[in-house]
């Protein structure tokens, strides 16, 4: 039964991975930008949450909307200024700029917050609280809650892209920037909105990460970016639900690996990722686009 619990855990973690990943996927789909600083943004959000709590003493869950709005605004500004500048100068420049941002953020966080990890403190009882199915399957409330939150966010994002005016514009600009301009859309503004969404979703994920484990300056690239990327690759580009599937596959693979040997946990995930990279670079559910 340990195996079943582990797999369920992995599945639930997959939701969080998908939440990390959807912003990365969005920015690439719309602007063709691979944001190497993506993982670090989640960490920034986590630390913002720490700061907000320190100042206002509000409950952790309330920090989510506050931090999301803050990060979305930061995302829009950053996109319209630096990232847009990099985009117009080419892919190489964009990679260098996002890489530079990543290094700056990580080292900056390290300077201000030291390299120690921090948690967002949901209260010990909540972290370990769980319910049981049958006598042996244990499901922690927090993990389940985060998974549900992730699914809700993905659903919301999907609806937004399908039904609203700006959602359509985002998809249109992603398809054909010039044609969108001819219809009156300022693509830089649309890019900004997409970036704001990406920053917002990764902020939610960052706070959840802070609740479920701890955050530290380096996990942005050590784990988050790579897991997000792996989820996107495994699940395939261009599909939000594919990203969820990718996240789940990654989470389950890690859980299985951890069961066999605790230090194999990250390796197992990377193994799956490399396998997919070799066999089918398009991922599991893409429409055949090249990675």
């Amino acid at each position: 039964m340990e195996w079943v619990n582990a797999i369920i855990q992995g599945l639930l973690t997959g939701g969080l991975y998908a939440l990390f990943a959807c912003g990365l996927s969005l920015m690439f789909g719309v602007m063709k930008v691979v944001n190497l600083a993506h993982g670090d943004l989640a960490v920034v959000a986590g630390y913002l949450g720490v700061g907000v709590i320190a100042v206002t003493h509000m409950p952790v869950l309330w920090t989510i909307p506050v931090v999301v709005v803050l990060m979305a605004v930061i995302g829009y500004i950053l996109q319209r200024s630096i990232i847009q500048g990099a985009i117009s100068r080419g892919e190489l420049t964009t990679l260098i700029v996002t890489f530079g941002l990543s290094i700056i953020i990580e080292n900056g966080l390290q300077q201000f917050f030291t390299a120690n990890s921090r948690g967002l403190g949901v209260g010990d009882s909540f972290i370990t609280a769980s319910f049981s199915i049958g006598s042996q399957i244990i499901i922690p409330w927090l993990n389940l809650g985060i998974f549900v939150l992730a699914v809700i966010v993905l659903l919301g994002l999907n609806q937004y892209l399908s039904v609203t005016k700006y959602g359509r514009l985002i998809r249109a600009v992603a398809d054909d920037r010039e044609a969108a301009q001819l219809s009156g859309a300022d693509y830089r503004h649309v890019f900004g909105i997409a970036a704001a969404i990406a920053f917002g979703t990764v902020a939610i994920a960052g706070i959840c990460e802070g609740m479920i484990t701890t955050i530290s300056p380096t996990i942005g690239t050590d784990t988050i970016l790579l897991f997000a990327f792996a989820s996107v690759v495994i699940g395939g580009l261009g599909s939000l639900w594919g990203t969820l599937l990718g996240g789940i596959v990654l989470g389950v693979a890690q859980a299985i690996g951890a069961q066999i040997n605790p230090s194999w946990e990250p390796l197992a995930g990377y193994a799956v990722f490399l396998l997919v990279l070799v066999i089918r670079p398009q991922g599991l559910t893409s429409r055949g686009a090249q990675a």
Binding site: R168, R171, A172, D175, D176, E178, A179, L182, S183, A185
Partner: peptide
């Protein structure tokens, strides 16, 4: 033509209406 391939016919028209 340069239609938006991932959008439906009506969605293409709706994009045209965005800033009409």
């Amino acid at each position: 033509r340069r239609l938006f391939p991932s959008l439906t016919l009506e969605e293409n028209l709706k994009v045209g209406m965005s800033y009409a």
